[in-house]
Every structure is written in structure tokens, then in C-alpha cells.
Nucleic acid binder design. Structure first.
Length: 926
RNA sequence: GCGGGCAUAGCUCAGCUGGCUAGAGCACAUGGGUCACAACCAUGGGGUCUGGGGUUCAAGUCCCUAUGCCCGCACCA
């Protein structure tokens, strides 16, 4: 006896085992292989601090589906995994850890000791997420796993930095940056989020130096007054015209500052006069540049006030704000009363650190920057001319919009964990040397003991190199030339700016080509109630919990099936259950197939293959190339299911290749559940129980051939269950490395195309139509049965009355199928109406009518109601169709096949209408 | 302020380049332990596709507009 799957579908029994088998077999590994076409995806490297969350699960599943399909299609399909050091996130976590465990701060520990702890921490936790990825079924090439801080990548980072510096794309300068006081580092613009927070405007009077009234300005940040170096007004603002060029006095501080004219102030906002603090506001910084104003830094790096704030030195910025406002309000100004004129509550838009939610402090600071204007251009062009496409398309706009007004990228971070900036300072002569290796001595003055820059690089600087650094760059390795540019990049829309944009311009700069051809963008996975999942809300659903409960296949299927590309989706228990139930259904159906075929020697001799035959040979058609089975032995239902699968396979392949994965899953679902399980298996059951051994063998063979292709189609989405079932089918080799049912990109014809040309295909088309008719009849009988309240167990006799042009032979063999599926005791077929029972329930279908006769079941009331509905439906349709067809515009302009289809439709609807009316009058007095 | 998205069955959502009698899952109703499956099977009800214009022979699908939600960028006077 062959091995049979266990009665209950329980993914825990095999998922982990199968993953282990795959991994050991080496089938995840991809090499540069000139005999195959390359397909490559680099995995967005998760943070080593991270845990797998639903967003990852979606991201991983999308990539895994694409990789598995391409692997089955015979590509050298590389999926390159890795992890990211995520400097800020990791640094904060490790620092917390040290504080808790050792009671020491980062500073107390020192840089070297801290880094040791960080590496130890990475070794301890860095592998956790990759274990979780394995649970999901991630079929990436673990042999190539990389870490953004490993040796090769360090080299790439230094190389890129030096090259960009040498081309003058990287510079060091004193510029306005965003400072996070909690993380203790500068941030790039992309790392700052914006949020409205409750704040106020305080209106303060700055008295004129000559004793006049002076000017009132509004501010939401009074503590920056210590850094004010001017008051700006618009040159056309009548109110202040007389003040321009005069001096005002900074309240209490006493410093004199000029009133300047600049186009920046908007006369309609506030008082129309703006205090200018060049060191702490980006706009003020620019005004200051234009007017040569001094920059006075009054808030220091830890958000504490500097000496510029006088007695407030050392005080927290917000404490200072409160105290300073009080002092200003209480003070007696020159005109008597306080300097505070008024105060109003208002929502202030404020910059927030994307890591810690702290309000960032804009400040002038000396940092390293990447000059963006030149670099952005090729990245813009690549998208515009189609070398880089976004799926869905709308994300291209977002990408372009960001690049088109991009500002220079601040890349230095005041942290320890990360790639240290390869810049060396000579303290003797002040020379700055940027070099691949640490120089022994100063190139300018010869002094030794150069000091390396203390700062590290933005973690995204190394991520930006990921698509080529992981393939060996800057060496020109075989992998690099074979796999670069990669095929698709899959990521969430939330990191387009951080990552995608930077990879593209970095790749174009370093390699001359966009690092990938397509960006497949997905949305967020939200909680069941539509709220964003977040740690702080604690509403996250752990993918591992879900896998434990429902299996990875169900989770994957739900994630893909859940929503269209690019949009946010909700996690849904209902959908997870539906997916698990679907897996269960497949499991049971397969169990049935295996129980009925596995133990039979004659079947194994048939070596059932794919419905598509060997070698992906589309041109030879589908069912007719089933190996070892003479085509005349295939029955109608066999041809029907094989055509169904074949047509669907082509469709599904197209959907996958255009990244419509949710559409693809929907189609597979219907194919497996509705066509294969609900109809085909039921059609075939009597044959399996029959005595015609030859026919039994054919049925078994088709069952297996069809199931094989269904498993192939479903495998990328539900890899575990399909592989497990495959293993019960006595196949050679594993499903994961078997082959895809269709290979559209080879230019094969589709079976439906063949169908029109080939004699065999006419036979298939006839069989197909017949089975569809059988389904209609069966449904009609079941409907009547339900309506009349007949027990399902009770066999009923039926009469089928055919239309004139519908020959009796077109129902040949259908009687048995109908009999079994509709539980019919006897099928009578009549062409002229003779033999139609006088008293019967009826159903009028296209080109035939079905009568179910049983005296005790007659319910003409119900039938009248049903027919009445049918009549009005048909009336509506007929009116619509007639209107359409009598419209000359339609018949003249619409494509011929559409017009013809409408004519045919009208004919059948009119026909049905007449019959319904006739039937209604027949039963009018019953 | 600039830009983008969404509005379809009670709920959650599909519906590609315009050609439907608008679909699925869940929920609901009725019947059924039928020898793969109760994580099941069968049958059924349920929608003027947000409102208003327009383009077209044809609009859920394209354009404009209104309303209501959502998001990104900018904005700390």
C-alpha cells in the first residue's frame, strides 16, 4: 500500500520538516549559470534588532512567490537575504541593555567596549528573525546571507564614500540639520516625520533701540530668542517700512539686532514681522545667509541651553521656555508692562524623530552631506524613460516628486554603531584626508597620528548599496555581472524615500544601471479594526502565532489574497480561516486521489505527467498530450477539466507576471475548489468504482495529471502543503524544483488558440461545452429539489426536452453524470416534447428544459414565483439588448464580435422568454 | 499650500488596458453526517457600484465636479 496522508490536515506535522528538506537539498541556492536566464531579488534587510512582524510577512511572501515561480520556470532565481545593522535602532537597544544589566551609560563604557557589546548582542539576537523567516517558508539563498556591517560590505561602503568624495558629491559643511536630542545625533530629512502638536504662539515686543515702540513678533519657540540676530519684515509691508534698517533690542538680553527687509516674511501671517534665528531654523538660516547674519547657537546637542542663554545655560530647552516666558511677562519693558503682548493656543506642526518620536531641534552643525542635485537627475530619468517602473504606477509620482525637490543628504551620525566615516584629520596642519585605508601620515605636512572622524554613516548609506555590494562590488565578480541589475525590488511604500530612491541613484552612479527594473510596492498590514499595528498600541499580530495556529500556507495565502497591490490591507481572522479551510479542502481532495490511485500498480505504469506534457510543449495542446493515454480514451469530463486548468494556468501566469498576485490566488482558489473538487472529482467517482479497468486507469491518470498542475500553480503561494502532497504522489524529485505548467515568455501559443485550428481541439471544445451544459442541468435539478423540498437522498426521475438544433448525441454520456450528481433515478431525453410529464416542476435553460416529475413534490406556486422572476429578468435583458442592437451607432462602431455576441444573447433570451411565458400559461391553473 | 488615494452586498474587499446578467470570503436563510472533506456539501436571499455633470455606440471602469474619509510632502510667525 502506498503511503496515504493523515486524515487531518495539520501543518505542524510537516511544515518545519519540509523546510529543512528544502534547505538541505540546496535548492534555494542560485548561481551565475549562462545556460539559464537570471532572475534576482535582493531582500530588504530587516534590522537585527527586529522581530518578524506582519509587514515583513507580507513583504517576504510577495518575494517568495515571485522567486518560486521563476525557479519553477527554469530561471536561475536568486533571492539574496541579509540583515541590517540599523545603527540608531540597534544603538538605542544595546545602550538600554547595558544600562539595565550593567548600570552604565554608553559614555561610561566607552566606544570600544560599547562596540564589543553591540557585536555580542548581534550574535545573540541577529539570527532570531532569520529563524522566523524560515517558519514562513522564505526560500532565499541562505548561503549568501549578508550583513551590512560584514567585511565585504564595509569595503563597498568605504569605496563608495571615497568615490563620491573624489567626484565632489560628498562634502563636509556647516549646515542646518535636524537634531534628535534623545538619539543624540543628526538626522536626514527623510528621518523626520511631521506632526501637529499642541503649542502656542507668544507675541513679544522688541523695543526699538531709539526708545520707540519697536516691533511685536510671534514665536512658538521663545527659547530661541537668545539666538536671534535680526527681525525681518517684508520690504513692501507698509506697517514696518519706517523700521527697516533700524535696530531693536532683544528684551532683557539687551543685545541690539537690526530690522531687515527680506521677501521671506508673509505680511499676512502673525504680525508680519519675524524674528530671525539663523542657527535654529531652516528658513531663518537662509535669510541669515542672504544678509550675512551671525549664527548664535543657543541650544546644544542634548537639548540643553548653551552659554548664549545666559543664566539659563544648562537648562532643558522646554524648562527654559517656561522660565523665560515668565520672566519676559513679568519684566517691565521700556513702555511699561511686560514684553509679552499676548499668547494664543495653536497647533504647531513639528518635526519628530522617526525612531523615538522626540521633537527634533533644527540647528546648524558641521556634518557630512551628499550633494543631491546631480545624483538625482539620472534617477529621475530612469523612471521617466521606463528603465525603472513602479507597480502600481502611482508610486512613480511619489518617487519623482521626492527626487525633484530633494535637498542634500546629511549622512553623518553622532553614533558609534555603524560604518565609521573614512575621513582623517591632521591636527598639525588641519588637512582632511578621505581615503580607503587609514593613511600613515598627513599627505600635506607629513605629520603622523592622524585622527579618524568620530562619526558613523547613516545606516541607509550602506543599504543604498545593497543590490550590488552583496553581489561583490566593487570587485567585478561573475555574480555581479550575471545578476545585476536585479529584476524586482519588493518593499513597502513607507521606505521608498529611505531606501528605494537611494538605491537607484547609488546604483546608477556606481554601476551605470538602475539596480532593478521593477519596484513592487506594497502597503501596510493593519490590525483587524483598520488601525495601524504598532508596538506602542500593542495591537500587533505576531505572524509566528498565526503560523502556529493556522500554518504558514494559510497566512501566506491570506496575505496575498487579501488585497490589491500597493494598498493597505487589514489582517483578517475570517480570511485566515478561509485560507486554512482551503488548504484543508485541498488536503482532503488529495487524500482521496492518493487513496484511489496510489495503491494501483497499473496507474504507476502510466507515469501520469502534466496536462501540458513534457518540455512545456504548449503547441501540442493540453489534454491530448497526456502521456501514455490514447486520446480517444479520454472522456468528456477529462477533456473538460484539463482545458479548464490549462486555460486558467495561462491566465494565472499572466497575472503573476504583471504582479497581480491576488487575482492569481483567486483564480487558483476557484479552480481547485469549484471546478476540480466540486465537479471533476464527483464526475469521476463512479468510474473509479466501476469495473472497466482501462477506463479506471484513465480516470486515475487524469486525476493525477490535473492535481499535479494544480499543485504546481499553487505551490508559490502555499509551498508547504503542496510539497507535502506531492511527496505522497510518488513523484520523482521535489515540487519546488519541478516546473511551471506554462512558459508564456517562450512565446508558446495558448491552448485556446490551438483549439480553433486543430481537429482535436474541436473535440475538446465540444466536450467542454457538453460538461458546462451538464453542470447547468445538475444545478437546475438541485434547485428544483430544494424548492420542492425533496430530500437529497431521494432519487428523482427527470425529463430533458431538447431544442431543435440541439442533437441528442450532444448529450451522449451525460445522463450518467447527471444521474449521479443530481441524484436522478432516470433521465429521459426527448426532442419533440413527447414524454414530457403532464405534472412536473420545470426549469428552462439555454437550449433545453428540464422537468422533474413527482406527484407529491408539485409546488406550482413556487414555480410560478420563480418563473415570474425569470420572466421579468428576461424582459429587462431583452429590452436592453434590443435597444442596443437597434442603435446604429452600436452596430456600426462596436467590434463585430461584440455585436454578434449581443445578437446571440438576444436570440437565446427571447427563446427562453417565450418558453417561460408558455410554461407559465401551462401551469396557470394548476 | 502642493500631491496622491479611497468611496462597490450587512461586514472585509476583488473587479487589468471601458463591452456583465457586477463577483469572492465572512455573515444570513433552508435542507443534508452522501463511502476525500462538518475546517464539509447542496440551494437561496441580498447591490439604482457616494451625489451631479460629461466623453463614448457602450462607463463600476475614462474626464470634470461636489461630498465624506485616508495618506504623503511642505509648513514650528
Amino acid at each position: 500500500m502506498a503511503k496515504i496522508p493523515e486524515k487531518n490536515y495539520d501543518p505542524k506535522n510537516f511544515e518545519a520538516r519540509i523546510y529543512g528538506e528544502w534547505e538541505r537539498s540546496g535548492c534555494f541556492h542560485a548561481e551565475a549559470d549562462p545556460s539559464k536566464k537570471p532572475f534576482a531579488i535582493v531582500m530588504p534587510p530587516p534590522n537585527i534588532t527586529g522581530q518578524l512582524h506582519m509587514g515583513h510577512a507580507l513583504d517576504q511572501t510577495l518575494q517568495d512567490v515571485l522567486i518560486r515561480v521563476k525557479r519553477l520556470q527554469g530561471y536561475s532565481a536568486l533571492w539574496l537575504p541579509g540583515t541590517d545593522h540599523a545603527s540608531i535602532a540597534t544603538e538605542v537597544r544595546v545602550a538600554e541593555d547595558i544600562l539595565v544589566n550593567e548600570g552604565k551609560t554608553k559614555a561610561e563604557l566607552g566606544r570600544d567596549e560599547f562596540l564589543k557589546r553591540a557585536w555580542a548582542w548581534k550574535d545573540l539576537y541577529g539570527g532570531r528573525i532569520t529563524e522566523q523567516q524560515r517558519r514562513l517558508g522564505t526560500s532565499c539563498d541562505w548561503e549568501r546571507e549578508r550583513f551590512t556591517m560584514d567585511e565585504g560590505l564595509n569595503k563597498a561602503v568605504v569605496e563608495q564614500f571615497v568615490r563620491l568624495y573624489e567626484k565632489n558629491y560628498i562634502y563636509k559643511g556647516n549646515r542646518m540639520i535636524n537634531w534628535c536630542p534623545v538619539c543624540g545625533t543628526s538626522l536626514s530629512d527623510a528621518e523626520v516625520e511631521h506632526e501637529d502638536r499642541e503649542g502656542r504662539y507668544w507675541y513679544f515686543r522688541y523695543p526699538a533701540a531709539d526708545g520707540g515702540e519697536g516691533i511685536v513678533v510671534a514665536t512658538s519657540r521663545p527659547e530661541t530668542m537668545f539666538g536671534d540676530t535680526a527681525i525681518a519684515v517684508h520690504p513692501d509691508d507698509e506697517r514696518y517700512r519706517g523700521m527697516i534698517g533700524k535696530m531693536v533690542v532683544l528684551p532683557i538680553v539687551g543685545r541690539r539686532i537690526p530690522v531687515i527687509a527680506d521677501p521671506y516674511p508673509d505680511p499676512g501671517k502673525g504680525t508680519g514681522a519675524v524674528k530671525i534665528t539663523p542657527a535654529h531654523d531652516p528658513n531663518d538660516f537662509e535669510v541669515g545667509e542672504r544678509h550675512g547674519l551671525e549664527q548664535i547657537v543657543c541650544i546644544g546637542p542634548n537639548a540643553k541651553m548653551t552659554a548664549a542663554a545666559g543664566k539659563y545655560e544648562g537648562m532643558d530647552r522646554y524648562d527654559c521656555r517656561r522660565a523665560w516666558v515668565e520672566e519676559l511677562a513679568a519684566a517691565s519693558g521700556s513702555g511699561g508692562g511686560g514684553y509679552l503682548v499676548k499668547e494664543e493656543k495653536v497647533n504647531i506642526p513639528i518635526g519628530i524623530c522617526y525612531r523615538c518620536d522626540t521633537a527634533v531641534e533644527p540647528m546648524v552643525s558641521e556634518q557630512w552631506f551628499v550633494r543631491m542635485d546631480e545624483l538625482a537627475k539620472p534617477a529621475i530619468d530612469a523612471a521617466k524613460d521606463g528603465r525603472l517602473t513602479h507597480v502600481p504606477e502611482r508610486f512613480e509620482k511619489i518617487y519623482l516628486h521626492w527626487l525633484e525637490d530633494i535637498r542634500d543628504w546629511c549622512i553623518s551620525r553622532q553614533l558609534w554603531g555603524g560604518h565609521r566615516i573614512p575621513a582623517y584629520y591632521c591636527d598639525s596642519c588641519g588637512e582632511i584626508i578621505v581615503a580607503r585605508e587609514r593613511p600613515e601620515s598627513c599627505a600635506s605636512c607629513g605629520a603622523s597620528g592622524l585622527r579618524q572622524d568620530e562619526d558613523v554613516l547613516d545606516t541607509w548609506f550602506s543599504s543604498a548599496l545593497w543590490p550590488f555590494s552583496t553581489l561583490g562590488w566593487p570587485e567585478n565578480t561573475p555574480d555581479l555581472s550575471y545578476f545585476y541589475p536585479t529584476s524586482v525590488l519588493v518593499t513597502g511604500y513607507d521606505i521608498i524615500f529611505f531606501w528605494v530612491v537611494r538605491m537607484v541613484f547609488s546604483g546608477l552612479e556606481a554601476m551605470g544601471e538602475s539596480p532593478f527594473r521593477h519596484v513592487l510596492v506594497h502597503g501596510l498590514v493593519r490590525a483587524e479594526d483598520g488601525v495601524k499595528m504598532s508596538k506602542s498600541l500593542g495591537n500587533g499580530v505576531d505572524p509566528i502565532d498565526i503560523i502556529d495556529r493556522y500554518g504558514a500556507d494559510a497566512l501566506r495565502f491570506m496575505l496575498i489574497n487579501g488585497s490589491a497591490a500597493g494598498g493597505d490591507m487589514r489582517f483578517s481572522t475570517d480570511k485566515i480561516e478561509a485560507a486554512r479551510n482551503f488548504a484543508n479542502k485541498l488536503w482532503n481532495a488529495s487524500r482521496f486521489i492518493i487513496m484511489n490511485t496510489g495503491s494501483d500498480k497499473s496507474v504507476s505504469g502510466l507515469t501520469p505527467g502534466s496536462a501540458f506534457g513534457p518540455e512545456h510543449d504548449q503547441a501540442s495542446g493540453y489534454a491530448l498530450c497526456l502521456e501514455n493515454i490514447p486520446k480517444h480514451r479520454l472522456r468528456d469530463e477529462d477533456l473538460w477539466i484539463l482545458k479548464k486548468i490549462s486555460d486558467a494556468a495561462i491566465d494565472i501566469t499572466r497575472n503573476i507576471e504583471s504582479f497581480d498576485l491576488s487575482v492569481a490566488t483567486q483564480k487558483i482558489y476557484e479552480l481547485v475548489r469549484n471546478e476540480y473538487c466540486d465537479w471533476y472529482i464527483e464526475f469521476v467517482k463512479p468510474r473509479l468504482a466501476g469495473t472497466d479497468e482501462d477506463d479506471k486507469a484513465v480516470a486515475r491518470s487524469v486525476l493525477i495529471a490535473a492535481l499535479s498542475d494544480l499543485l504546481r500553480l499553487l505551490h508559490p503561494f502555499m509551498p508547504f502543503i503542496t510539497e507535502e502532497i506531492w511527496s505522497f504522489m510518488g513523484k520523482d524529485g521535489k515540487l519546488i524544483v519541478d516546473r511551471w505548467p506554462v512558459a508564456l515568455d517562450r512565446g508558446e501559443k495558448s491552448p485556446s488558440y490551438v483549439c480553433d485550428q486543430d481537429e482535436d481541439d474541436e473535440a475538446v471544445a465540444r466536450a467542454y461545452a457538453k460538461i458546462e451544459m451538464v453542470k447547468e442541468i445538475v444545478r437546475a435539478v438541485r434547485n428544483i429539489r430544494t424548492e420542492a423540498g425533496a430530500a437529497p437522498s431521494r432519487a428523482l426521475p427527470i425529463t430533458i426536452k431538447l431544442d431543435g438544433d440541439l442533437g441528442r448525441e450532444q448529450l451522449d454520456g451525460a445522463g450518467a453524470l447527471i444521474g449521479k450528481l443530481a441524484n436522478v433515478s432516470k433521465v429521459t431525453v426527448t426532442e419533440d416534447g413527447a414524454g414530457v410529464p403532464d405534472d412536473a416542476m420545470s426549469s428552462i435553460l439555454t437550449r433545453l428544459a428540464v422537468y422533474v416529475a413527482a406527484d407529491d413534490l408539485l409546488d406550482y406556486g413556487a414555480e410560478r414565483e420563480r418563473l415570474g422572476k425569470e420572466q421579468s429578468r428576461l424582459e429587462g435583458n431583452i429590452a436592453r439588448l434590443r435597444g442596443k442592437l437597434s442603435n446604429e451607432g452600436f452596430t456600426a462602431k462596436a467590434p463585430e464580435h461584440i455585436v454578434q455576441a449581443e445578437r446571440d444573447k438576444l436570440a437565446t433570451e427571447e427563446d427562453a422568454y417565450e418558453k417561460v411565458v408558455a410554461r407559465l400559461s401551462d401551469i396557470a391553473d394548476k
